[in-house]
Amino acid sequence: MDSPHGAAVTVKDFGLKGPRGWAFRSVTIDAAPSSLIAIEGPSGSGRTCLLLALTGRMRPAEGSAEVGGLALPRKIAAVRRISALGPVPGVSELDPALTVAEHLRERALLQRRFDASLRALLRPRAERTAEAQRRVAEALDAAGLDLAALPKQERTAVRDLERLEALRLSLALALISRPRLLAVDDTDLKLSDTDRAEAWTLLRRIAASGTTVLAVCSQAPKDTTVVRTVGCAADEPTDADTHADTDSAEQPDDNTTEEETAHALTGTRRA
């Protein structure tokens, strides 16, 4: 897989305020490219808000931040283009009614249609199809998802996937765009100790291959760059509150990336 150079993340006194108060404040990060950054804290402490702010999906209210040399919020659209969301509840969830193959096909189509250069779009159909197949195969390999091992291979519905398999699929979908920054929410949610260790091993491998990884968790492994969120006030917005704001703000425009377009389409399909 072609390994993009990971995005350095530099943050100082970073804060985000929602309709019900501060989601987080005074966050500081200094992480080199290709780092594995664990955002640790209890549910409702602003972890997801921080994840979305650092990927350009939410606008910060104070402090300074650079992701891959791009300043937030001034270059927020550019940060969206170099980042990708893995599983984030309420924002980039898998559709349980779709099969693994349907998810992969949809994401590859969106990637090819909305994120390709004009020169790439003018290439013969057979070449474009082959390139899309290569991207999918590379992403599946990077995420460690073996389609042959699934109950119905690629025709397996998402609802029939184990939690770790679903995580792998979400990561594969995000990696199709070859992002410099990959964001994962609720990394250790509902995982056994064995599966949790395997998930962190997978994220370490993705980071080592050249992609900076942001991972929200309740308890971070010792060998990660740890950022802790504790919440700011009793009336701070919950992750669900801010997801609703994010969904309404993330409408496709001229700068829409494949990732954002997929979110918009998913939201339309479920409405």
Rank of each mutant, 00 (worst) to 15 (best):
R270L: 15
L191W: 06
T229A: 03
L189R: 10
Q133P: 12
G63M: 06
L94R: 08
G90S: 04
R113N: 04
A183P: 11
S117A: 12
A197K: 11
R74W: 00
S218H: 13
L85I: 01
A38I: 10
H263V: 10
L150P: 08
P179H: 00
P73A: 08
R205G: 15
P73I: 05
S177C: 08
P124L: 15
T194I: 12
T268F: 12
R155E: 03
D241S: 11
A23F: 00
A157K: 10
R196Q: 13
F114H: 08
S170I: 04
K12I: 01
K190H: 14
T266M: 12
G44C: 09
A207R: 03
P89G: 09
L167T: 00
I37V: 15
T246C: 11
K222V: 14
A7L: 03
D115T: 01
S45L: 06
A126I: 06
L182R: 00
I37K: 06
P73C: 10
D146E: 08
E258G: 00
D160C: 07
R59S: 11
R47F: 01
V9T: 06
T187C: 07
L189M: 06
A139N: 03
Q219A: 13
R135Y: 03
T261G: 09
P221T: 09
R205K: 08
A77T: 10
D186E: 14
L54P: 11
P19K: 03
S83H: 04
T256K: 04
A233S: 13
L140M: 10
E162M: 02
A197T: 12
V27N: 07
S34Y: 11
P96D: 05
I82P: 00
P179G: 02
A142E: 07
T268M: 13
A101N: 12
T261Q: 11
A197F: 14
P87Q: 02
L36H: 08
T10G: 06
P33Q: 00
R125E: 14
A130E: 13
D141R: 05
D95G: 09
P33D: 09
R119N: 11
L161A: 03
G267T: 09
V227L: 02
M1D: 10
T268I: 02
A84Y: 01
D30Q: 07
E258Q: 01
E102C: 06
F24R: 01
L54K: 07
R20W: 14
K17F: 15
L182W: 08
T229M: 02
S64G: 12
L167C: 07
K17G: 09
G231M: 03
L104D: 07
D186M: 02
R74V: 04
A71Y: 02
S45T: 13
